[in-house]
């Protein structure tokens, strides 16, 4: 149904919209409204109803080019099928985690996978160093190596309870529960009100919630 290269949402079966809504915190109308957002994002560079990495970059950073490890990880986590593009169903699945009503365990898990750059099942010190270096470059901030190491040492002293030099998922969970502000990025308040943000869904709707 969501092979959107051929089908408009109008041709989608209600049951598929209902399935997506059923498996997510979204109502059917909210899924339809998110389809309006998906259409906009997926046609911004290549008009094929699939979100390519360049389109994700353009949406998040208003520039289609430039390498960034965070963008790569966000894209990989959205791209469940690992086929190099984000389809509508994958878009809904990933955004579900960012819904204010999504279970905190899902947010903790998503953030862990985001920061586990090498996907080893642990957040390693080198990965944290790499991510900190990336954000410093992105924001034109400079910190002395001494202060940088102090920040990372302190973070690991707090998070790495078994002192093995890496943060396991259980350690991450305990750590973010102690510092819930670290999950701030995992919630998008906009998702509570998508039908207002994308009212044009009403022209294609299959159902009145």
């Amino acid at each position: 149904c969501f092979d959107c290269r051929q089908n408009s949402p109008r041709t989608c079966q209600y049951v598929d919209l209902a399935r997506l809504a059923h498996d997510s915190p979204f109502s059917v109308n909210e899924v339809e409204a998110l389809y309006e957002l998906f259409k906009k994002l997926s046609c911004s560079i290549i008009d094929d109803m699939l979100i390519h990495k360049e389109e994700l970059r353009l949406a998040l950073f208003q520039a289609p080019y430039g390498e960034n490890i965070f963008l790569d990880r966000v894209f990989d986590l959205f791209d469940e099928k690992k086929n190099g593009v984000i389809e509508f169903e994958e878009f809904i699945h990933a955004l579900s985690v960012f819904h204010p009503n999504a279970p905190i365990e899902e947010k903790i898990d998503f953030a862990f996978r985001l920061y586990d750059l090498r996907q080893t099942g642990f957040i390693e010190r080198e990965e944290v160093q790499q991510m900190v270096a990336t954000i410093l470059m992105e924001s034109d901030m400079t910190l002395s190596d001494e202060l940088l190491n102090l920040i990372i040492d302190k973070t690991f002293a707090d998070a790495d309870s078994d002192k093995d030099g890496k943060i396991s998922k259980a350690e991450w969970k305990a750590y973010v529960l102690k510092h819930p502000s670290l999950l701030k990025n995992m919630t998008l308040p906009y998702l509570k009100d998508v039908t207002t943000a994308f009212p044009s869904f009403i022209f294609n709707t299959e159902v009145e919630d």
Binding site: A59, I135, I151, H179, L182, N185, L188
Partner: peptide, 29 residues
């Protein structure tokens, strides 16, 4: 007590400041 070391930001707080991790960009175009 008596320490003069500055308040140290958590590394993940710093990392969380990346624009690429702020998906609200989807809704702000």
């Amino acid at each position: 007590k008596g320490s003069d070391s500055p308040t140290i930001i958590n590394a993940f707080q710093l990392i969380g400041m990346s624009s690429f991790l702020d998906l609200s960009g989807f809704f702000e175009q």
